[in-house]
Design a protein around this nucleic acid. Structure first.
Lengths: 158, 158
DNA sequence: TATTGTTATACTCTATAACTATA
DNA sequence: TATAGTTATAGAGTATAACAATA
């Protein structure tokens, strides 16, 4: 104790109780990442949910709010608020589908695309923060592993 | 379309919007894992938080509720409820530290250890569900990667 | 005066179920 | 009758601050 070259106290940096329990590890890493990203996303008028929605809108082009909900693993009522927030920031425009006037078409505006690009930069920096110890190939492997996990089985979680 | 060998509809199994954004991927995998584990933990009288607390109590032996809070990345007020729940299930006993009567010592009961073992089995099965496509060495690598991410930097998230 | 645990309160999220308008 | 979106409401979870006991 009181070692001059090790100013960090003896307190563990993280709980060993997480070490061999992958679900706890994944949740903790996700929680850490969210906690680091959210304050910076807030400066863009975004949060985790609206950032995710922008990403899915651009990449997957859902044809209705309900399809967006499904892609996000969420439900219709939640997407209403998400779309409201994005619309209020000027990041999406909401128009009724002329072919089926029950559906709302969400189109990302140029400002929305700029916000998404900035949010992606934040996400990349958070990734660097937490995975700076990995080289490129290790990071690519982690990406592939997690994508594979999502591709397996249906999403049963609302 | 309507391919007999591919009964899954054209709907994507998961949103491509997540694909290149690691924080979104991690959160989604964690969310999936939690959604699969929670209903089964509930049969043990546990949830994600109380399971995590049991694991940390056994592995890290915190000397007070506040230390447990720090190890879990939580705060004192939340731990009160966590400890209340574990105590109500008979999984921990709460006694005042004789050396400093402000502190509560949480000791895991034999029933608590049995519940933790069952919860660990659930966690392992959820891991198999989502990572069945990985062989042992790939899984070990994922473990090490995530542990490394948590060991880097302080936890700033309450 | 500082710290630990607790309680209280307000706030956010989420889940569910009505309700509307369109089909 | 069924579907997409919306609204309402209740419940869970979280954060903050005040408070009591102990140091």
């Amino acid at each position: 104790m009181s070692d001059p070259v090790e100013p960090i106290t003896a307190e563990r940096a993280f709980a060993r109780g997480f070490a061999d329990r992958l679900p706890l590890l994944v949740n903790q890493v996700g929680y850490q990442m969210a906690g680091r990203a959210e304050p910076r996303l807030a400066e863009l008028g975004l949060n985790g949910k609206t950032y995710m929605a922008l990403a899915v809108l651009v990449a997957d082009r859902p044809g209705s709010q309900l399809e967006l909900a499904r892609l996000m693993g969420s439900v219709a009522a939640v997407i209403v608020t998400v779309a409201d927030n994005l619309e209020a920031e000027g990041y999406v425009e909401r128009t009724r589908d002329p072919a089926d006037r029950r559906r709302s078409l969400l189109t990302v505006t140029p400002a929305g695309r700029r916000a998404l690009a900035k949010a992606d930069r934040i996400a990349a920096e958070v990734e660097d923060d937490m995975l700076g110890h990995l080289d490129g190939s290790e990071r690519a492997r982690l990406h592939a592993t997690l994508r594979g996990a999502l591709e397996r089985g249906p999403r049963a979680v609302p």
